[in-house]
Write a protein that binds this DNA or RNA. Structure first.
Ligand SMILES: [Mn+2]
Ligand SMILES: [Mn+2]
Ligand SMILES: [Zn+2]
Ligand SMILES: [Zn+2]
Lengths: 148, 148
DNA sequence: CTTGCGGATTAGACTCATTCTAACTGATTA
DNA sequence: TAATCAGTTAGAATGAGTCTAATCCGCAAG
């Protein structure tokens, strides 16, 4: 279920952490591995449960710490939907999120550059946005699969 | 500060509540008035503080209840930004939200129909969305004013 | 009028995701 | 060896939001 990181992924982790003066630790590697293994936008608790299978001593606090670190160095995005638990997404390409009302599952929706541009264009002069979050909420015909 | 509802606003309240079999009460009227008086996306507590000035006996639970009722009958939208307290917005026109990193203030950003359409168009077949939330996060030059 | 009903309101208890704290670990450096 | 320091850990604290059970109140039936 939880295979190891590819050489490429390990380098990405190394590089991103290094840039902000932080180190690769076994815990960080385990948490990052969990995120890449199943790109289903898990909550902190889901990450915790999955990572524990491979590192039983891992604490919940550390999962919070690792995820915060990853968000800080741009390895992972936070995904918020209304008042639910925060979810985490390692897909760094520009994309929106679709939450299925029926299943609760969160799907990645590709965001073409021209759509992103048209969105940015609605900001009046003087507004400078670093982050745009787009989330859909509705129904997806079962069988639809977008979050690889 | 908190002027009364216009005839038109009172009718809107009446109508929306009536449609879902609910009544106008003094508490609901007070909360709705607060929302319309200052369209700055207040949190529940801010609504509570403001409404108390005009109705000292009002309870926090009732403010939660009223706001939930309003959201349920489409009078008001919830605005979520990351993990912060939920905010409330009586602007029913399609719009996005911009949160100013520096001040925390939330501004309405008009959403032209063609941009909304291009956004909907990114959904693959089989995905049917009822709600789209768009939020920007960044800096607005002070003096910028969009949430009337 | 009284009484009964049902929706609305209320205070306070409770939940639980997240944050905080303070002790501990382990690698690296002086 | 001893000091240092980032990282980890368990558990306590926080606080927005929800739940519960008692009360209120407008209205309609008797
Ligand atoms: Mn979520
Ligand atoms: Mn908010
Ligand atoms: Zn995603
Ligand atoms: Zn708004």
């Amino acid at each position: 279920m939880i295979q190891n990181l590819t050489e490429h992924d390990r380098e990405q982790l190394q590089e991103a952490l290094g840039k902000s003066g932080q180190k690769v630790t076994p815990q960080r590697e385990a948490v990052f591995t969990v995120l890449l293994a199943q790109r289903d936008h898990p909550t902190v608790d889901e990450v915790f449960q999955r990572a524990r299978e491979v590192m039983p001593g891992l604490s919940l606090a550390t999962v919070y710490n690792c995820l915060e670190t990853f968000v800080g160095c741009g390895l992972v995005r936070q995904v918020n939907h209304e008042r639910e638990s925060t979810r985490y997404c390692p897909n760094l390409a520009p994309h929106a999120h679709f939450r299925d009302k029926a299943t609760g599952r969160v799907h990645d929706i590709e965001l073409p550059p021209e759509v992103l541009k048209s969105l940015r264009s609605i900001l009046p002069p003087g507004f400078d946005s670093e982050v745009i979050e787009i989330s859909f909420h509705g129904r997806a015909q079962s069988g639809e699969q977008t979050s690889n």
